[in-house]
Simulated assay, not measured.
Amino acid sequence: GSTSITSLLNSEQRLTQLNIRLLQQSDFDSLDDIEIGFQAESFLCWAKLAVRFNAGMNQYRESILEALRLEGHHILEASPEVLANNLEAKKSSETLTEINDLQEAIATVIKQNYQTECEAIATARNISLTEYQKLKKRLSKTNKQQREQRRFELMLRYSIPITSELVEKDDAGWYQQLQLHYFMTVGRQYLVARDAEIAKTILELGKGNIFIPDFNDRLLGATIGVMELLKIPPLLKDKQRELKNIDEDLQLLAKTALANRAAIKTIVGIGLAVNSSPITIVRRFLDKIGYSLECLRTESHQKKRLRIYRIVHPDDGRFEVFQQWLQR
């Protein structure tokens, strides 16, 4: 992420202007009165915190140690002798076995507790819309109430039977992947109306004002526009196509993406290295919708080894969800 406040502010403002232009295509009549300068001090504070976080991630170890010092912890530098002794201890099979057994036991307990919670959410009591609205306003909720609220929200999201597997997939970001995939493909005709409705809600809640980061984060038009520009949707249609770095359309995709790395980072949130290969770029975009690539084989091409890939279409029940969304 960016470590420049000015750069971050400018990129968010450019994205806002892009989103507004896309909304104008839907004849959205509230754009004339929109106030993007609302809470400028909050926007600046957001940028400062974001830059601070990004800088901390760039120097993760130093940031953690400094945070520990600020909390009052004493950081002791281990001597070379101590480090050497620890390495020798780790090399012993008995110590390694103990460590592995402990890690496995902890992982097992964590997994069991999580699965129990997912099952509890899936089997929570069905509540009515009125009950949900009242529950949502409550500041203090019991575990039972939290599970009932979560189950109702999952029903609103997916409109399919709620299972523990669905809870797990939702926790892993499945809804965001499905939304992007749906509005990029079978639900494309509803994208503009969807973004317009969200923008209308944001403007009503803010009485004509918007907080730029929230506004940009909620809309999908710009992200899908980038993916369409790079011809990602056509790649999904041919399930048997084999992909390789020397494909002309993939090379054009990579050329376009690398020429617009900064914009892609701002709009889609994908950071691309200057030497990213076409396959790497395709994989990064497919990951946004929960798709992946599998390597089929390796061939020789001009005395070099060339890997051949194919897109993996997940069998995760998403098209059942899409059918429900189309009927709304």
Rank of each mutant, 00 (worst) to 15 (best):
A257F: 10
K244Y: 15
L258F: 06
V321G: 03
R241N: 02
I281W: 08
F285T: 01
E299A: 15
I267C: 05
L296P: 06
F322R: 00
C295M: 13
A259F: 07
A262E: 10
Q251G: 10
K303P: 00
V282H: 08
V274Q: 09
K244M: 12
D315T: 10
R318A: 15
E242H: 14
K265I: 00
Q323R: 10
V312A: 00
A262W: 05
S276T: 03
A263R: 05
R310W: 05
V282G: 05
S300E: 06
R284Y: 15
Q240N: 14
R297Y: 13
E320K: 14
V312M: 03
I267W: 04
T298S: 14
I270P: 06
R318P: 00
F319Y: 15
R305Y: 04
G290D: 07
G290W: 07
F285K: 03
E299L: 12
L258S: 04
I270N: 04
V268M: 05
L253N: 01
E248M: 08
R241T: 05
L258W: 04
V268P: 01
R305G: 00
H301V: 05
T266L: 06
L272E: 01
Q324A: 13
L296A: 07
E299S: 15
H313N: 07
L286M: 04
K265C: 05
E248R: 11
L253R: 01
I308D: 00
K244N: 15
R318M: 04
D315L: 09
V282Q: 02
H313E: 00
R307S: 13
V268T: 11
R307P: 01
E294N: 10
L253Y: 05
V282R: 06
G317I: 01
K303W: 02
D249F: 13
